[in-house]
Design a protein around this nucleic acid. Structure first.
Length: 368
DNA sequence: GATCCGTGGGC
DNA sequence: TGCCCAAGGAT
């Protein structure tokens, strides 16, 4: 452990800190659906869903997911399309693909029991240092660190740690700190309490220090530095991309949809035929028709422009011009290419920008 | 270590 | 509006 951190830890009355923190959590914790028991599977699902995702967003997804896939066995045997559909709109879709892959491994190699060792749990797809520690401590009561953004923010203030928490290397400093501070009697509550405190009291901006159960242990509060911590460098701006997408019907009124590649952005989700537009070529309809014809051997007729849709990703901005049209002739369906009617289309998982497009299209056709 | 990978909400 | 975020992990 780094010397400067050690000095801060030595200033803490660790036992008193643990008691105040855990006591607060015991009485003030939120009633959340994944806190009803310590089923390792439910803890696991909740932790994956909660990665970079707000609690309020996760709650309905968690409840629905557990209704559809209540056990390891159920998820292991579930149809991938249905699993992806259950994740639709949650984002970071590789999470659910990794989750099902890992669940199948647990089902086959571990007899359906989630591993309870750091090595076993960490070897599973999609389970990194945070999630491993969270499952081990919450489901199995093991004294392992579970360092997320909350924990780094809270401890940077408690211990006056000035390292940049945006740097991956900083996480090790906080893990070392947690190993010094964690309650051996109740590591589950200790870890959850740090995160709950970060979510409810020790917030990124304007922390509620006057309500804080560990205020008297906080070195940032003592120095009046709570608003200067944590140190976090900002990320750079996203790049913009211009796209054209088309909702095309065949002579029977079925819409052509296609599956996105199995890696990369929005992997394995469905979309309407889409092409990236070159900036020096303004004939968007022609570029879209060319793309469609090159891909499927049939030239579509574009009837309407449905306007523009903007969508902001973490690292990318899409501006999509949306068109509607039709095509004559046969296109062979495949696992990656489907012709679906408006009823069937609800069975397929679409990213949010394509959901918006479909909504616009249905409103447009209804007005006809 | 830097980049990729979603989404919706808050200010 | 634009930026920051929210219980990270894979490459």
């Amino acid at each position: 452990m780094a010397m400067d951190i050690k000095k801060s830890v030595d200033k803490l009355d660790i036992k008193s800190f643990q008691d105040d923190l855990i006591g607060w959590f015991a009485s003030e914790q939120r009633d959340l659906p994944w806190r009803k028991d310590q089923d390792p599977y439910k803890v696991w699902v909740s932790e994956i869903m909660l990665q970079q995702t707000r609690v309020d967003t996760v709650i309905p997804y968690f409840n629905r997911f557990l209704e559809n896939f209540p056990t390891i066995e159920a998820l292991a045997h579930a149809d991938e399309e249905k699993v992806l559909k259950a994740w639709e709109g949650l984002g970071y879709y590789s999470r659910v693909r990794n989750l099902q892959s890992a669940v199948r491994e647990v089902h086959e190699k571990y007899g359906g029991k989630v591993p309870d060792s750091p090595e076993g749990i960490s070897s599973l797809k999609g389970v990194g240092p945070y999630t491993a520690g969270a499952i081990l401590s919450i489901a199995y009561g093991k004294p392992e660190p579970a360092v997320d953004g909350n924990v780094m923010r809270v401890l940077s203030r408690i211990l006056l740690i000035w390292d940049d928490i945006a740097k991956p290397s900083s996480r090790k400093i906080f893990e070392a700190a947690v190993r010094e501070l964690i309650s051996q009697e109740n590591p589950s509550y200790f870890n959850q309490a740090l995160m709950e405190l970060g979510a409810l009291i020790c917030t990124p901006t304007s922390p509620s220090c006057l309500l804080c159960p560990v205020r008297e242990h906080c070195q940032a509060f003592e120095e009046g530095a709570q608003n200067e911590l944590p140190v976090k460098t900002k990320k750079k701006k996203q790049k913009s991309i211009l796209l054209a997408a088309g909702i095309f019907k065949d002579s029977e009124g079925r819409i052509l949809i296609r599956k996105r590649p199995e890696s990369g952005l929005l992997a394995n989700l469905w979309e309407f035929p889409t092409v990236e537009l070159s900036l020096d070529f303004q004939r968007q309809r022609d570029q879209l028709s060319d793309h469609f014809e090159e891909s499927y051997g049939v030239r579509p007729k574009i009837d309407e422009s449905l306007g523009e849709i903007g969508h902001v990703f973490s690292h990318l901005i899409w501006n999509i011009h949306v068109f509607a049209g039709q095509f004559a002739g046969e296109i062979d369906e495949s696992p990656q290419l489907k012709l679906v009617n408006q009823h069937e289309i609800q069975e397929y998982a679409f990213p949010v920008p394509y959901q918006k497009m479909l909504k616009q299209y249905l409103e447009f056709t209804k007005a006809d």
